[in-house]
Simulated scan of single mutants.
Amino acid sequence: MSACNQLIIDRMQSPVQLIPQLAAHLIAAGGKRLRPMLTLSAARLCGYQGERHIGLAACVEFIHTATLLHDDVVDESELRRGQASANAIFGNKASVLVGDFLFARAFQLMVADGAPEVLRILSSAAATIVEGEVLQLVIQNDTASTEAQYLQVIEGKTAALFAAATRVGAVVADRPTQQAEALDSYGRNLGIAFQLIDDALDYSAVQEQLGKTVGDDFREGKITLPVLLAFARGGEEEKSFWRRVLEEREQSDADLTHALHLMRQHGVIEETVARARHYGDLALQSLAEFPDSAHRRALQGIVEFCIARVH
């Protein structure tokens, strides 16, 4: 992880000073480095002893960081991990362009690795992430959205990169397709569980825990599972409320309080967490393909960590 962090710092440098300055702002804000950790752990789980996984872990983090910069512009976010977002400080134009720079750096790292299969996996994930984000934009503010559409969004915008991050660990270790598929399944289900918990947290956590204010998704009109469940379980009066605050974006300070009340009344946060546990269990089952080891236990621990964030 130390070598990966150093590579990230080295590769975000540029003679155009605004680039490392803006990138450093986001990277210095913290973050769990969860996705590169998955690549490093998956490679070691598969018995890999070289150093290719370090460059690929950095590549995964650059893809993730680029999408964060772009997401904050799209969402008009003012906070990221409890601090002022890059776009709030440097402006939207600089954030978008530095995000593009980090995407380019990610592709340079893919090409430097030289393996066509690695390039295929990571470039496909990058395209899928954008598709997921665009689909989220399409269904945003639409209470007629379905759970299937919501799941398609989170499989694209979150789970695809988790799956790619773990799958390339098997590829660099030259493991059989069965093990690569098992790690892909682990990462994909972990990613879904991770996003479900994130979406539950938006309606249940304090700012210090979450790194953003409670109800950000609500104010942006995002259609997440807690909203879909509350909408489905409510009567016509409640449905009218959700249409007003999410579709028409007519919101007062009291509306978030009422939304939280409805969610508690219908038990939707607990249901969302239960769904996350289901996908977490699927991720753990995928690891049965591998013998017990410190690296397998680490990957198991990541699942438990992701679910436990809600408490």
Results as ranks from 00 to 15, higher is better:
Ala3Trp: 15
Cys4Pro: 05
Asn5His: 15
Asn5Val: 11
Leu7Glu: 01
Ile8Glu: 01
Met12Cys: 15
Gln13Ser: 06
Ser14Val: 06
Val16Arg: 14
Pro20Leu: 14
Leu22Thr: 14
Ala23Phe: 10
Ala23Pro: 02
His25Cys: 00
Ile27Val: 06
Ile27Ser: 10
Gly31Asp: 02
Arg33Gly: 13
Arg33Lys: 10
Leu40Asp: 05
Ala42Thr: 03
Gly47Val: 04
Gln49Tyr: 10
Gly50Ala: 14
Glu51Ala: 15
Glu51Met: 13
Leu56Ala: 08
Ala58Tyr: 02
Cys59Ile: 07
Glu61Pro: 00
His64Ile: 01
Thr65Asn: 15
Ala66Glu: 06
Thr67Tyr: 13
Leu69Gln: 11
Asp71Val: 00
Glu76Phe: 08
Glu78Leu: 11
Leu79His: 07
Leu79Ile: 10
Arg80Gln: 07
Ala84Ile: 12
Asn87Val: 06
Asn87Phe: 04
Phe90Thr: 07
Val98Pro: 11
Asp100Tyr: 13
Arg105Phe: 03
Phe107Leu: 12
Met110Pro: 05
Ala112Gln: 14
Asp113Tyr: 06
Pro116Tyr: 01
Val118Trp: 08
Arg120Trp: 07
Leu122Phe: 09
Ala125Phe: 09
Ala125Lys: 00
Glu131Cys: 13
Gly132Pro: 09
Val134Asn: 07
Gln136Val: 00
Gln136Gly: 15
Leu137Gly: 12
Asp142Leu: 10
Asp142Cys: 13
Ala144Pro: 02
Ala144Phe: 09
Ala148Tyr: 03
Glu155Tyr: 08
Thr158Ala: 01
Ala164Pro: 12
Val168His: 02
Val168Ile: 11
Val168Gln: 01
Gly169Tyr: 06
Val172Lys: 04
Glu181Met: 15
Glu181Lys: 05
Asp184Val: 07
Ser185Lys: 11
Leu190Gln: 09
Gly191Phe: 00
Ile192Ala: 00
Leu201Met: 15
Tyr203Asn: 04
Ala205Met: 13
Val206Ser: 12
Val206Glu: 14
Thr213Val: 12
Gly215Arg: 05
Phe218Gln: 06
Phe218Arg: 06
Arg219Met: 12
Arg219Ile: 08
Glu220Met: 05
Thr224Tyr: 01
Thr224Ser: 05
Leu225Tyr: 08
Pro226Val: 10
Leu228Glu: 06
Ala230Glu: 00
Ala232His: 05
Gly235Asn: 14
Glu237Arg: 12
Ser240Lys: 15
Glu248Gly: 07
Leu256Ala: 12
Leu260Asn: 12
Gln265Met: 10
Gly267Ala: 00
Glu270Phe: 13
Thr272Glu: 02
Thr272Cys: 15
Ala274Ile: 14
Arg275Pro: 00
Ala276Tyr: 00
Tyr279Lys: 02
Gly280Gln: 02
Gly280His: 01
Asp281Pro: 02
Ala283Met: 03
Phe290Tyr: 08
Arg297Pro: 01
Leu299Gly: 04
Gln300Ala: 08
Gly301Asn: 09
Val303Thr: 04
His311Glu: 11
